[in-house]
Each structure stands twice: as C-alpha cells, then as structure tokens.
Design a protein around this nucleic acid. Structure first.
Lengths: 152, 152
DNA sequence: TACGGATCGTTGAAAATGTCAACGATTGTT
DNA sequence: AACAATCGTTGACATTTTCAACGATCCGTA
C-alpha cells in the first residue's frame, strides 16, 4: 500500500480541501487498516478477505457463496478461490444448500473456529491501534455512522 | 465491485457481528462510493485516482510526485502513470522542483482547472447521495472522526 | 408436466492494479 | 571529492478484478 507500516505520515497535503472528501478519507483509512490487518493475519495464514469469509462461516448464519460475494463486494469467482483455499486447509466446508441445491453453504470446522478465535483477537488489537486517538464513545459513534450510511 | 450499481443491498448477513468491524465497514462504504464516483467521473475521462491527482494539482499546494504517492497511498510508479495520462490530455504539467531539481511539481493547466471544477461538483452529488441518510451534522461528525483517526 | 428463463457455483481468459528492483540524475553528508 | 540517500522513471512480475461461458438447479407459466 505504499506505506512502510508504522511510519507516521503527516504530510502538508493533508491540509488541502481534498482532506474533506469522504471518499478519500475512507480510502486512506481503509488502506492503512488493511496493512495492519494483513500483517496481523499473516500469522494465521489469512488475509483480510479469507478472514472475512472464515468469520461469516463461523457466524452461524450459514451463508451461501452468493451471499458472501454480495456482502463482501466480491465477484462470485473470487469467493470460489477464497473458499477453496480455506477448505484445503480444513478451516471451512461446503455444505449443500437446504432449500436450494445449487447453492453451497459455507460452514466452519472446529479447527476453523479455533483459528478464527485467535485471528479475531489479533484484529481487535489492530482496530484499537488504528482508532487509538478516539475515545470509546467516539469509536462507537464512528461505527454507528458507518453502519447507517451503509444500511440506513 | 460486484454491485450492479444502484441495486439496494440489505442482506441478512448485515446482522452478523462482522458488521461491527470498522475495517469491513470502511471497505464496504469505500467500495460502494468508488462505484458511484467512478461512474460520475467517467463523463470527464477521469477515475477516482486521476481525479485526486488533478485535485491536488489544482490546490495551489504544488505537490511533488513523491508527496502525491505518500498522500494517496500509491507506489511512485503509479503516480507516473497517472500524471502521464493527465499531462497527455493537457490537464496538468510537470514543473521542475524549486529547491530540489530531482522533484517534479505537478501543476494544473487552465483546462485542468476547468475540468476539475465540473468533476468536483459531480462528486459532491455522489457524496450527498451516499450519505443521504445522515443529516448535515452527522455528516460533519463522520468527516471529523475519519480525519482524526487518520491524522490525530 | 414440460418448457424457458433465471440463478448458483465454477472455470478460464483478459484487463487492470499492485509490487518491486534497478537505473540516471540530483541532493546532502562526511 | 566521495558516498549514501532520494526523486522520478522504466520494466518485469504477481496479484486482483472483471467478464463471459458452462452444467446444474430452481421457478414460473403454458
């Protein structure tokens, strides 16, 4: 992502009006967070996306691959690769859809849940690191505003 | 991005705990916004990134390519391509750095400023569209929280 | 019941993007 | 003067995104 990790960046360009663009702010914060998250997840052989798939597989919601694609803003073929990888490593399994036999439900194995638990803890550390300058109430407010912008 | 544009998405997965991950919220909102922004910018032959470069070139801050790379979280070689494209279309020019003759300052042409003005207006419409569910105070608060998370 | 169109996961190819190492030119330091 | 470091640039390589096609399955309708 161009940022060599922990390097603090306070460029004079931050003063530009563009620093008010929500789009740019989202891109920058997302990019910075991805670096942290992927670094933390590397210990478990995961990346942000495979973690997201694993997490939803562990959620009890029994998502189909199509739902994963929609929710994670991915092409269905990308979900195939992600699930293939997790399945080969014994973290998730493909189960036949219940009402729809075309669909495949992604469920976690016990090993998958074990890894997920550890990875999730590592990611919470990252999130706190990234949002350290915000107090607890502000973090909650940020989360709330983002969720509302997405889902009303 | 997997989202066929204006399609409203209210999947049951949104209820999952993962919906509280700031990282995922940022990714989703950023992805959704990028679709809107790039669609709007296509009218001007721009994409999100070339627009960002053009905008900073129009800012009066006289950014160097290195500063653009740092600020936009891009590899320097990507900035070369973006500036090449804008320069070929007569929207920006490379000027020699003042203190440092290695550096190249990116400045806008009058045509660049003309396009930028129109593109910026189009993007503001996108932003309002995306944040429509938030009132003005909430939008300001979101901007503020994002900026603080990035720059303290 | 059988047909036709739509959807699911999958494959594979093409395009776009990200990453990285090397280079000449220039800078700053010793 | 010599050296290491930095800037923009090029080109190679890897990853990611995008898209079209396919068999299997579902659903609505004739």
């Amino acid at each position: 992502m161009g940022l060599p990790s922990t390097e603090v960046e306070t460029p004079r360009l931050a003063a530009a009006e563009i620093g008010n663009d929500v789009g740019l702010l989202l891109a920058k914060l997302h990019a910075a967070g991805s670096v942290l998250n992927n670094r933390a997840l590397a210990d478990f052989g995961l990346r942000e996306r495979s973690y997201s798939v694993l997490r939803l597989a562990c959620s009890g919601l029994e998502p189909t691959q199509r739902e994963l694609a929609d929710f994670l803003s991915l092409d269905p073929s990308q979900v195939v690769s992600l699930v293939d990888d997790l399945e080969h490593r014994g973290l998730v399994e493909r189960a036949q859809g219940k009402q729809d036999r075309r669909a495949k439900i992604i469920v976690s194995t016990s090993e998958g849940r074990r890894i997920h638990k550890k990875a999730r803890a590592a990611l919470e550390v990252c999130e706190q690191e990234q949002l350290a300058v915000l107090d607890e109430g502000e973090q909650a407010q940020l989360r709330m505003l983002l969720k509302r912008a997405l889902w009303g």
